[in-house]
């Protein structure tokens, strides 16, 4: 359910009564409604679903799983010695 794709906000502006923006998805850009992430600024990554940004991505949280994997790797390496 609910295809949500991460993209980078590259433009923010008002279009009539709506807060809109342009979001780049790895070389493909689309107009996206930013009403639900009113504090988004260019450079932020957002999750986009049916043309609406629903959530800003937290880069620090995004790195967490990789730290965990590193930790696992260290533990395994330690166990093997």
């Amino acid at each position: 359910m609910c295809l949500g794709i991460p993209g980078r906000v590259i433009e923010v502006g008002r279009e009539r009564d709506l807060l809109m923006g342009k979001v780049d998805f790895g070389g493909v850009a689309r107009k996206v409604c930013l009403e639900h992430v009113p504090d988004a600024v260019p450079g932020d990554y957002v999750i986009v679903h049916v043309g609406f940004a629903l959530s800003k991505l937290d880069e620090q949280e995004a790195r967490r799983v990789f730290a965990l994997l590193e930790e696992m790797g260290r533990l395994e390496g330690g166990a093997g010695q």
């Binding site: 359910m1 609910c2 949500g4 409604c33 679903h49 049916v50 043309g51 609406f52």
Partner: peptide, 8 residues
Amino acid sequence: GFETTAPA
């Protein structure tokens, strides 16, 4: 849609 689509 579910709650994800409902706000849109």
